[in-house]
Design a protein around this nucleic acid. Structure first.
Length: 328
DNA sequence: AAAATCAGCAACCGCAGTGAA
DNA sequence: TTTCACTGCGGTTGCTGATTT
């Protein structure tokens, strides 16, 4: 026995919406609201549409203050940066771009931005001297495609490795942060800041806990989404609280964090060992190739890719304040 | 000029999470 | 505690106009 359909598909209109349908739906919702029930809404409005379809039409097209059309450079940067950090969490990304819908951003990424990134980076590579890390271009493109196709399914540490891989391992020690007694290896936190490992983040993403965390303490999406920041290559931060806000941060309930699986602890431990071993530079270099290929719009500290000796665990975004996360 | 191909995007589908009963 | 209707999300599809052959 399968799941019951959300509506009677035989008696439901599908395909593009007519202006009349748009007008009906818009007028009704503006006057009465959605009533919290999309399934019954079409009947109330007098539309032969599925409730899901109405919801989608409203959210993506009819609701007020929707922006369509050209994305700005700033928006491009935000999308790129967030995509590299959290992957295809379009709703979260959309939350950082007022007026943009997740569908719009998804389409924009798939049809244009991804290509723009690849092209942009190809040009950059063509003008750069080759380093010791030799990679056939075709292979790199293949690798690319594979990464894009599979990144959702693969282990959290496979990709994207660079930006947040070591975030928790060298979380600031010289500030007034509380440290979790339960799982200090994985994260540190103050009352409103938590530093994730990539593994945790991916797990959170994969189970939609990130959204739940928002509601747990009433924060908006602004507080849940990754912020990017630059962590000095010497691993020491001296500039005070402002820099904290640049890290991967979220306002959330520590009980939720503590509930993350032991897998993250194991992986974190192995990564921690990697950091302390000599193999890290090689590994990092390998991984960063893909990352580098895909993220030409992100500015890195020079040491990330140019040096095999230093690993800078944080990346810097051109204008982190656009993330809506920095305290002004 | 016509056919084929490509690109953009609106809409759909199905799964997972949530919360009320 | 379980069930199930409903919502939200991300991936995919398919239509349409633009571009290329």
């Amino acid at each position: 026995m399968g799941r019951a359909p959300c509506c009677d598909k035989a008696n439901v209109k599908r395909g593009p919406w007519s202006p009349e349908e748009d007008a009906k739906l818009k007028a009704y919702i503006e006057q009465h609201g959605t009533g919290g029930n999309w399934i019954t809404l079409p009947q109330k409005v007098g539309l032969k549409r599925c409730g899901k379809s109405c919801r989608l039409r409203w959210l993506n097209y009819l609701r007020p203050n929707i922006k369509h059309g050209e994305f700005t450079e700033e928006e491009d940067n935000i999308i790129c940066s967030l995509y590299m950090s959290i992957g295809s969490r379009w709703s979260i990304i959309a939350a950082q771009l007022p007026g943009r819908t997740d569908n719009d951003i998804k389409n924009y990424w798939n049809t244009r931005l991804k290509k723009k990134l690849l092209l942009c980076n190809k040009q950059r590579k063509d003008h750069r001297p080759r380093t010791g890390y030799n990679h056939n271009k075709l292979e790199m493109m293949k690798e690319h495609e594979n990464l894009f196709a599979s990144h959702q399914a693969i282990n959290a540490y496979s990709w994207p490795p660079q930006p947040i891989l070591f975030s928790t391992l060298i979380a600031p020690q010289n500030h007034d942060l509380g440290e979790s007694s339960v799982n200090s290896h994985n994260f540190q936190y103050s009352s409103d800041q938590v530093y994730f490992s990539q593994d945790q983040l991916c797990q959170i993403n994969s189970t939609n806990q990130l959204a739940s965390m928002n509601s747990l303490n009433g924060n908006t999406c602004n507080s849940s989404v990754i912020s990017s920041g630059y962590y000095p290559s010497n691993g020491v931060i001296n500039n005070g609280p402002q820099e904290y806000t640049n890290y991967i941060s979220a306002g959330l309930d520590t009980d939720v964090l503590n509930s993350t699986s032991t897998h993250s602890q194991q992986v974190d431990k192995s990564v921690f060992e990697m950091v302390n071993s000599s193999t890290i530079s090689t590994t990092s270099q390998d991984q960063s190739t893909s990352w580098e290929e895909l993220s030409p719009l992100v500015n890195y500290p020079p040491s990330v890719f140019e040096s095999q000796q230093q690993i800078s665990p944080y990346y810097v975004f051109e204008e982190p304040r656009y993330m809506g996360l920095l305290k002004q």
